[in-house]
Design a protein around this nucleic acid. Structure first.
Length: 270
DNA sequence: AAGAGACCCTGGATGC
DNA sequence: TGCATCCAGGGTCTCT
C-alpha cells in the first residue's frame, strides 16, 4: 500500500532520528526479507556502520552508510518501520531488526512478508530501472507528453509501471486520473498536449496533497510514530464504488485494468 | 512491445 | 460457530 507519499512521510519522520546513528547489529527471522547479499554477508557489511543519509527514490527508502554501501528497503504492501527502545516486546510480524547506537532499534514489521532489504555499493542494481521522480524539476509537462507519445499502453497500468514513472501506485494513479478528468482506459499516445498537461498537473497535485496529509492509512500503513495518515479521507474515487462523484454527481465505477481495481467516474473522465 | 496470468503472503470480509 | 473462498495491491516472472 505505501506509495510515494507514504514512503516520503516515513523518510521525513525517520531522517532526523537516524542520520548520524550507528547500526550495531542486525537480526532477522524471515530470510526472504533479505534480497541480497545473503544474510551473513549483509550482517558482516552493515555492523558498526554509520548512517550518513536517508532519502527516497520511488517507493524505496535509501540509507547511505559511511562504508559507501547503501541499505535499501522496500515496504511493499504491509511494511512498517519504527524506532523503539531496545528490548521492547517483539510483535509477531517483526522480521528484521537493526540494533542502533543509543539503545534503540529500527524494526521492520511486515505482516505479508513482501518487503525487501538490499545492501549494495551500486544503487543502480536496485534503482536503475526506475522512471523519473514525478515531483522532480526534471519531470516537466513536455517530458511527460513525450513519454506518453512513445508508448502504446492503457493509461492506468502505464502510470503504475515503476519504469515509466517512479512512485505512483494503484490509489494515486486513480486519484490523479480523476483530477485530470481522463479516462483510465485511454491509450497513452492518444492524449493530446492539453490532456497530457492536465495529467501532469493531476499527478503532481495529488502527490503533493497526499504528502501534506501525511499519506493515507489503509489497513496496515502507519507513520513511524504509530499515527495514521489523513489522506484516505480525501480520496476522490479510490474505494468509492457506486458513490457519487464529488465533481459531477455521476456514479463512481470499479473496473479491473492490468489486474488491479480501478475506480473512476465515467461521466466526467473522458 | 504489450498484456494476461501465476506467484509471493496474510488478515479480514463474505458466504454457506 | 466454523470452515472455505475471495480479495487486497507492492512487485517479479513466464508465456503468448
Amino acid at each position: 500500500m505505501p506509495e510515494l507519499p507514504e514512503v516520503e512521510t516515513v523518510v521525513r519522520s525517520l531522517r532526523g532520528q537516524l542520520v548520524g546513528r550507528q547500526i550495531l547489529d542486525i537480526s532477522n527471522s524471515w530470510r526472504r526479507h533479505i534480497a541480497f547479499p545473503d544474510y551473513e554477508q549483509l550482517r558482516e557489511r552493515i555492523r558498526n556502520k554509520t548512517i550518513t543519509g536517508l532519502s527516497r527514490r520511488g517507493k524505496y527508502l535509501v540509507f547511505s552508510l559511511d562504508s559507501g554501501d547503501f541499505l535499501i528497503i522496500h515496504l511493499k504492501m504491509t511494511g512498517q518501520l519504527k524506532i523503539v527502545p531496545e528490548g521492547t516486546e517483539m510483535s509477531d510480524y517483526t522480521h528484521t531488526v537493526f540494533l542502533l547506537s543509543g539503545e534503540e532499534e529500527l524494526r521492520f514489521h511486515d505482516v505479508r512478508k513482501f518487503g525487501k532489504v538490499y545492501l549494495t555499493d551500486d544503487e543502480s542494481l536496485v534503482l536503475g530501472k526506475l522512471g523519473p521522480e514525478p515531483l522532480s524539476p526534471a519531470f516537466t509537462r513536455k517530458r511527460l507528453f513525450e513519454m506518453l507519445k512513445d508508448r502504446h499502453r492503457i493509461l492506468k497500468p502505464l502510470l503504475i509501471d515503476q519504469g515509466f514513472i517512479a512512485g505512483i501506485g494503484n490509489i494515486y494513479a486513480d486519484e490523479s486520473l480523476h483530477r485530470a478528468r481522463i479516462d483510465p482506459r485511454r491509450i497513452s499516445n492518444s492524449l493530446n498536449e492539453q490532456e497530457s498537461r492536465l495529467l501532469h498537473d493531476g499527478i503532481r497535485r495529488t502527490l503533493r496533497e497526499a504528502i501534506e496529509n501525511g499519506g493515507a492509512t489503509i489497513s496496515d500503513y502507519r507513520r513511524p510514530d504509530g499515527t495514521e495518515g489523513e489522506m484516505q479521507h480525501s480520496f476522490r474515487v479510490y474505494g468509492r464504488e457506486e458513490e457519487p462523484c464529488y465533481r459531477c454527481k455521476g456514479k463512481i465505477k470499479r473496473i479491473i485494468l492490468g489486474g488491479r481495481s480501478t475506480y473512476f467516474c465515467p461521466s466526467c473522465q473522458m
